[in-house]
């Protein structure tokens, strides 16, 4: 069973690296952020699987930190890197 978890982690790592192509291609900034989101969630899953595969409970704490701090990146991006110019005035999205 533990071998199986390791294979699953390997599959997820490969999956995550394929998803990196979106960070490379873009084209807009939120697209690249999305790729980061994918990697964050997948890293949490990889850590959970590795924690069971290698029987190290502390890895769950690392996963917890990843899950918590992934919000920080997105919020900083939205509020500081790519902030809106102001409240939308009369612009109605179709």
């Amino acid at each position: 069973m533990t071998d199986l978890y390791f294979y699953a982690a390997l599959f997820l790592l490969a999956n995550m690296l394929v998803g990196l192509a979106r960070a490379l291609r873009g084209p807009t900034m939120p697209d690249r952020m999305l790729s980061g989101e994918l990697m964050g969630t997948t890293a949490v899953a990889v850590l959970l699987l590795l924690s069971v595969a290698t029987d190290t409970e502390a890895l769950i704490d690392v996963a917890l930190i990843f899950a918590l701090l992934s919000v920080l990146a997105v919020v900083t991006f939205v509020r500081r890197t790519w902030p809106e110019p102001g409240p939308p005035r009369g612009r109605r999205w179709p």
């Binding site: 890895l59 690392v62 930190i65 701090l69 920080l72 990146a73 900083t76 991006f77 500081r80 890197t81």
Partner: peptide, 18 residues
């Protein structure tokens, strides 16, 4: 790994974004 996830990747990344 814990320190890297929290400080190296998390906080540094937020500083760079800001």
């Amino acid at each position: 790994a814990l320190a890297e996830a929290a400080l190296g990747s998390g906080v540094t990344g937020a500083l760079l974004f800001a």
